[in-house]
Design a protein around this nucleic acid. Structure first.
Lengths: 193, 193
DNA sequence: ATATTTTTGTAATGATCGTTACATAATTAA
DNA sequence: TTAATTATGTAACGATCATTACAAAAATAT
């Protein structure tokens, strides 16, 4: 028995909510904000996401995890995975100002929720750790093939790349400036060879 | 005419407020939180800090700026300023878990307030830019004396160090682990020579 | 003493918070 | 056609939000 058909596309709703969360963060985003962005009333919203604001935020984080997994799949199919990662970093410099100011929603969450919501913070840390593992695995293989000539422990280099990303997340807000970021990223990547 | 003498030490109150803001951030900190931490009633609080929550947060940020200026003064008097900066980074690894989870209140503010409060975000960016300038100036001089042998533009190296700090601010929460952070920081600093 | 000034504690303000209740709408199953 | 089920929109809930009002307290100045 199916009941009244849903008006809203849940994935689209999560993406709209994600947009608001990304800019304002978990604490500063109100349910009114979310209703305005999604055009959903509180009735539908709570009927669909019974965990309320927290579930919606969790779903938004999960969407980022899936986006990351798509990238990882691309990486697996790539002929030169290490170059794909380098290009990923280089592309940061090309973003527009608004994108710079938003930063990374996952890193933002780790920064903001440590003493606010342990579940959500742990979810975010888990995603970043997966990204770090991807860096590490790719670097280890690239060391084998010679694409990375730095002989340091791949785990440390992976953690280093993760930290480059985390650092860019703040520095790009200080300097939303293509050339400055480009120079910076080239210097960060220089360590690999 | 002096009126009733103040019970509370304003600097101590700002430090107490800073503690709460540092952990919970601007948005998630309530005035009740601040009253509990400072033991001040709302009467005294608003009489002393007429700008309310925002002024109190601003004062907390200013306190960090002053702490930074004290470090900069130390640097000026140091025989090997570059080594002082290296030690500063190395000391991050030695912090306890709670300190790791708190991160840097200034970087936290840049991350959280871009779309919430432009004034406070701009204040925080200003502090980080001053820190970056200190890095740059110190590196430029260290290149002259040979303490830093990397010949790259000091401004780029300074921005790189700033980004290392910003990155550690997140990575130390992912891995509040002395050895991991130590290896990471040595790798970050390795670029200077 | 009395007037003046500042600080303090308490109580109240209106607004907004996240969430729930509930009647109605829109569908399928019987 | 009727019962069952799900989704929607609206109104309301109590709690908490940041801030203000105000009278009492504690000092100085006249």
């Amino acid at each position: 028995m199916r009941g009244r058909p849903a008006t809203y596309d849940n994935d689209a709703v999560v993406l709209k909510a994600q947009e608001i969360f990304w800019e304002k963060g978990y604490s500063a985003t109100s349910l009114q904000d979310l209703q305005n962005a999604t055009q959903m009333g509180s009735g539908s919203l709570y009927n669909t996401f019974r965990g309320g604001k927290k579930e919606l935020f969790s779903k938004a984080l999960q969407q980022r995890r899936e986006a990351f997994q798509a990238f990882k799949k691309e990486l697996k199919q790539s002929a030169s995975p290490m170059d794909l990662i380098r290009d990923f970093f280089r592309s940061v410099a090309m973003a527009d100002e608004h994108t710079h100011l938003k930063g990374c929603i996952v890193a933002n969450t780790v920064t903001a929720l440590a003493f606010i919501d342990n579940d959500l913070e742990t979810e975010a840390v888990g995603i970043l750790k997966d990204v770090e593992k991807m860096f590490t695995d790719t670097i280890r293989e690239a060391q084998r093939t010679g694409t990375v000539s730095n002989p340091a422990d791949a785990a440390v280099l992976g953690r280093y790349l993760m930290t480059c990303w985390n650092g860019l997340n703040v520095t790009r807000r200080m300097h939303p400036h293509k050339e400055k970021l480009k120079e910076l990223i080239e210097m960060q990547l220089g360590i690999l060879r």
